[in-house]
Amino acid sequence: MNIIEVENVSMHFNLMEERVDNIKEYIVRLIKGNLLYNDFVALDDVSFTVQKNDLLGIVGLNGAGKSTLLKILAGVFTPTSGKVKVNGTVAPLIEVGAGFDEELTARENIFLNGLILGYTKDFLKEHFDEIIDFAELRKFINVPVKNFSSGMYARLGFSIATAVKPDILIVDEVLAVGDYKFYEKCEKRISEMIKDGVTIIVVSHDMALIERLCTKLLWLEHGKIKAFGDKDEIISQYRKS
């Protein structure tokens, strides 16, 4: 079963040095006809499919379009052209804690962030203890998160985002934060999800992690697919380049 279908997806960004956001400049540019000046192609005609239970790793150098692709899959970006079909729920671990409100406490943020991610209120009440214990932040439950360290921040974010078992888990370099103990805990949780049949998409520069977790690889270069297929073939090619 195809759980994700990506068909001829392209993504263009308008990289204006000075972004046009006032009317006068807009009109000046419009007259000069260079509104679309500096068009940047982040993804160029990308097509692939992901089967259920696939463990897909996306590799490539900085600026290859990996994060853009993940954000398209997570529904944050709408592609400039092409179609994306996702059959199932997606839990995006893209910069966890993005929805936190600095002024609010850990408890309030669990509810706010959880609801933003689409959980129900009852679910959150039920799993509240689990979330706070996994993040090891029970002592700081009523502290505004602006006083948190970056590690605590990431732990709370990861804990909320993985409280539910999704159909597809998207992981973007998220494991780079936190100490090794928490790192191991995260990996363990991801491994459990793999056992439960969750489809996983990982972006990482950590080749050891990719080798451990993934079965398939997608290699992006300058927004195009350079190679797509089983891990073993591609990983040796990628290492050589």
Binding site: K71, A74, G75, V76, P92, I94, E95, A98, G99, I116
Partner: peptide, 9 residues
Amino acid sequence: GDLLKKVYV
């Protein structure tokens, strides 16, 4: 904006 750039809401 920060949130909208990272999570679909």
